[in-house]
Design a protein around this nucleic acid. Sequence first.
DNA 1: GTTGAACTAAGGGTATTCACTGAGTTTTTT
DNA 2: AAAAAACTCAGTGAATACCCTTAGTTCAAC
Lengths: 211, 211
Amino acid sequence: MTTKIAITDDHVMVLKGIESMLENTSEVSVIATYVNAKDALEGLKRQQPDVLLLDINLPDINGIDLSKQLLKLYPDLKIIALTNFEDISFVKRMLKNGVHGYLLKNTDKIELIQALKTVLSGSLYIQKSINDKLLNQLSSKPAGNGLEIKLTRREHDVLVGISEELTTQQISEKLFISPKTVETHRMNIMSKLGAKNSVGIIKIAIEKELL
Amino acid sequence: MTTKIAITDDHVMVLKGIESMLENTSEVSVIATYVNAKDALEGLKRQQPDVLLLDINLPDINGIDLSKQLLKLYPDLKIIALTNFEDISFVKRMLKNGVHGYLLKNTDKIELIQALKTVLSGSLYIQKSINDKLLNQLSSKPAGNGLEIKLTRREHDVLVGISEELTTQQISEKLFISPKTVETHRMNIMSKLGAKNSVGIIKIAIEKELL
DNA sequence: GTTGAACTAAGGGTATTCACTGAGTTTTTT
DNA sequence: AAAAAACTCAGTGAATACCCTTAGTTCAAC
């Protein structure tokens, strides 16, 4: 059985490029191409592909919203996002929307087929370079401001208390120490994290995964 | 060129199972098996595989820490995590550590090979069922407590101010309204989100992506 | 056995938040 | 036009957080 592919991209060159890449591959056939979101929504009413390659930067609707809509309409459709840019926040959002793959437009044939196979099996496909960026972003976070944050055991206890929305009094009772001590710890946490208040503490703690 | 695989799992059955699955596949050969973390660390000193299938639940060290160590020692090594459970938080952590794939132990041969190919190309492989769970978790969040949270425009403005660690006074100046009004908005936000204080507001706001 | 880091705690004051109530004005929806 | 929702503001007080400084104790490292 051949896999049916559709492509949505406002650049005809990209459409043609992908089509020719898949031309002499027997397992795959391109059944439709669309140049914008409206086009795609219309076309899919008539004929559903197995996989839709979807450009993120469409003229009418952005890819994130479109993919959300499409997956609601066609839950079995696999969507692979196409983009020129390696925008991590986009990747995250798309994946949350249920998109199955993320490819850059400079993808070669082998990788494209690999991606198609992977998403057809129901798994996620995320391209190497994007994966790298994702990891870089994650691993560069601990060194975010150059200095790694190290809370002491007790500071961590107090931090947990704060994050549980407890008052200084309640934290002190929980830890069997004086409220004044809890305050001292909180002050030290604030200074370590560069926070102006408890809200800042929590923000940074969540961001740096200190909890 | 054949791809060299090593497997780490304390259940010999699993080791044998995977070995036999890959037995008559020419592109792949299992060059080593290890039954615990110490074993693996020792063995890898002598001979490095291209891909390591790594059980999460080892007797001596947990898979998360081990994978961290291994990737530090062997940056080119591809690691596919193996597990019986679909624990989302584990998946996230492993991926952050730079692990390239995540497989359940009930994986069939086709999927295993698919996974191996994918990680070898440098991309991420996440199994269908795990992906489903991940998405479920994400999509069930908005309905987290049954009720969707809707902040008004002004409440959102105040929320932003709070998240910027501003005081009521400062927020009021920024929005050109009375501090008392800001307080009212903050109270309403707390009640809407079920927070006990500003810390709770921020926690929930981040969790529900209200910012 | 000294040094340093962490934990403990207090005084004393200022600033801010939290809580409750009530109410007029503006905007949006029906 | 009427109703509902959102925005505005105030008073009052208690509770809590924030700030700065100082200092004794414990515990592990050198």
